[in-house]
Design a protein around this nucleic acid. Structure first.
Lengths: 87, 87
DNA sequence: CTGTCCAATACCGTTTCGATCTGGCGGCAC
DNA sequence: GTGCCGCCAGATCGAAACGGTATTGGACAG
């Protein structure tokens, strides 16, 4: 699992659509599809339900999304903490 | 920044020594050194002070360590959440 | 049946990563 | 001060991961 996968996952979850998420992330659609699938494989659980109109979160995806946002925020906090001037 | 870098950083911080951390992580020492340096470069701040007896945390490293552990815990929580049976 | 809008697969070039080997630097014994 | 040992850092190489383009396959609208 990588940070990129988490960022990708959040984008797809928010857009409900791989193509739009790819555009937003400035990456092509196939890599994004692959990373999402790799993430699901690693977790051993599907996170999205694929429909002909896009992708919608499954319950497991909903739960994961909440934590995913927390991780991204934690990373941001860590970077800030390291760079912050010690007072 | 990658999860591996964070895990590497925590191990080095805890061991105070790249060689021992490498052994614990089952990785060779040079890759570990490089990842730590890459992390510092990306953050734009040194995290360790290099001494002939090992590496000791700088204040920025101490602050980062705290957050790094939180990130690892958050990731663990995310994995569990995704895999957990919905009740 | 045809066009459209999705995600998924195939294939390729590039980048990144880790392992091995080697160098350099500071302490310590004597 | 010379030799030795522990430790980090650099160079080089082969392997794995990543992203991009081109293409396929499935569902729905008209």
């Amino acid at each position: 699992m990588s940070f990129a996968q988490i960022r990708y996952f959040v984008a797809v979850a928010e857009e409900g659509n791989v193509g739009r998420a790819a555009e937003r992330l400035r990456v092509a659609q196939p890599p994004l599809s692959r990373q999402i699938r790799a993430l699901e494989d690693e977790l051993g659980t599907a996170l999205f339900s694929r429909t002909p109109r896009g992708m919608t979160l499954l319950p497991s995806g909903e739960r994961f999304l909440h934590h995913a946002r927390a991780i991204l925020a934690a990373v941001d906090g860590a970077v800030r903490a390291a760079r912050a001037e010690p007072r």
